[in-house]
């Protein structure tokens, strides 16, 4: 599988990352190496093998529907880069 600069640029858009030309080159090469390496999995017959999402046989892990006190707003907002009116503040216009 050949990874192209275009692939890297597309993926970086999805991941919300800016990459300069050097980075695109570097990541294209790194990604190609790794993906080629991963292509060795193609040799394995996995027909009928179900994917393992969780390693432990746990199911129906539930919580009781009981209210607990929420956290003080001061603490909720304590790490906000910017805040106003008790809210997290994004100064840029948000296109809906």
């Amino acid at each position: 599988m050949q990874i192209t600069r275009k692939d890297v640029l597309h993926v970086s858009k999805l991941a919300k990352l800016y990459l300069n030309d050097n980075e695109v080159d570097k990541f294209t090469k790194n990604l190609s190496d790794i993906v080629n390496f991963a292509d060795r999995l193609n040799g394995i017959d996995v027909s009928g093998v179900s994917p393992t999402a969780a390693i432990l046989p746990l199911q129906n892990v539930f919580r009781e529907d009981k209210i607990e006190k929420s956290m003080d707003r001061e603490k909720i907002l304590q790490n906000a880069p910017e805040k106003s009116y008790g809210c997290f503040w994004v100064k840029n216009k948000i296109v809906e």
Partner: peptide
């Protein structure tokens, strides 16, 4: 924010994982 906040290895893995 993400380009300045993350280092190279993190970006590399995010890109691989997103792919």
């Amino acid at each position: 924010t993400r380009s300045e906040g993350f280092g190279d290895e993190v970006k590399r893995r995010i890109i691989l994982g997103t792919y």
